[in-house]
Design a protein around this nucleic acid. Structure first.
Lengths: 200, 200
DNA sequence: CGGAGTTGCAACACGTATGACGCATGTGAT
DNA sequence: ATCACATGCGTCATACGTGTTGCAACTCCG
């Protein structure tokens, strides 16, 4: 019985702690996305806590950034894996993956840009997602959605660049689905008139 | 007579000084492009001069970065203006402008990313170049090169993003012309098979 | 009420980047 | 040789960010 009560107590406290950690991570994202050289003081201020509290939760500045990268990377992987499927038509998968990734990237742009982290797990997941991406484009090419002579490395680089641009742009009137639609259309057809969207 | 000799003297010394300034600017670009938080000491080391010399030429760290931005911005504007013309066919102009800009961006990637400088002249030139870019795409659309319903703001954003990606990528085997060819092709046609390069 | 846990606040030590000196040296022009 | 100028070197003061610690106050639970 003492155990159960203790567990409830600990659970409650841990929940508080988790909330504080989340608050700090989100404040750090907002702060660093505006100024990557911001100080811990500015992060603490943005989080509405004292600087010492930040240092209590994260032993060092690097540890904080690592935690941000780990958190965002997990969301990133989830966004891709939950949308990726080999059963649905490739265009559908491409759109869903794009929209899901945009949703995460809009909120965690800075943290997601830290692909080279001191945490090997982060680098591993990033390269894993990259593999999924390459696989998706290979299937797209095999399915005839992409040109047969498309350089898949260049395709992936352009895709990442477009995601970055779409997520950081001033399109507050467009939601992730609309952004994804425009992005995929651009990726597949570009802006040329003679090779327009409805050409056959 | 004393005047002429003095002028020669001053000219010679100024030439030396200009060379030192150039050396420092180029070293700063190399250093900051790898690590934006690098110290003045590292910049001086990369330039092969003492740290005090850097401080003699640039009163502060901000002044150095401003000077880099001003220098790169001038080269940027030159690259665009020297290639931009209303007489040549739009596709030719697009390719030449792209190749010229890539040549500058490859060497001055960090400095060119500082579009918001404390120097109002830099911001002015950047917005001026941006205007030229918009004008070019408007002409491209009027000439039928771009789809009539293309969102020119989105076109420009994608264009800038592709230039950034092409210039920072690991394509040491491709020169600026080859990069520009691939970039413009991607911009106009994307990667879709049904709307390929040779579609009519 | 009493205890555990967390936070804010103030203060501290430490390292590092910055910017400004003065002085000696070297180089090129007269 | 002499002068003007730029550089390198050593030194200094200063500011800022980081990370740690001790203490009081607060909250929640038993």
């Amino acid at each position: 019985m003492g155990q159960r009560c203790s567990l409830v107590h600990v659970t409650k406290l841990r929940s508080d702690t988790e909330r504080t950690v989340r608050t700090i991570l989100e404040a750090a994202e907002r702060t660093f996305s505006r100024n990557p050289a911001a100080s811990m003081e500015q992060v603490a201020e943005a989080a509405g806590v004292a600087r010492t509290t930040v240092h209590r939760r994260f032993t060092s500045r690097d540890a904080l950034i690592d935690a941000m990268a780990a958190w965002a990377t997990r969301r990133f992987a989830e966004a891709v894996e939950s949308a990726y499927t080999t059963t649905a038509p490739v265009p559908v998968t491409l759109h869903q993956v794009t929209a899901n990734v945009l949703r995460v990237k809009i909120d965690w742009g800075y943290a997601m840009s830290r692909t080279t982290s001191r945490d090997p797990e982060v680098a591993r997941v990033h390269s894993e997602v990259r593999g999924r991406c390459d696989e998706m484009f290979r299937r797209a090419r095999d399915a005839g959605l992409l040109r047969a002579d498309a350089d898949l490395d260049w395709v992936r680089r352009v895709y990442y660049a477009l995601i970055h641009e779409a997520a950081t742009g001033p399109d507050e009137d467009l939601d992730a689905d609309a952004l994804a639609t425009r992005l995929v259309d651009t990726l597949l057809h570009g802006f040329g008139a003679s090779a327009g969207r409805w050409a056959m």
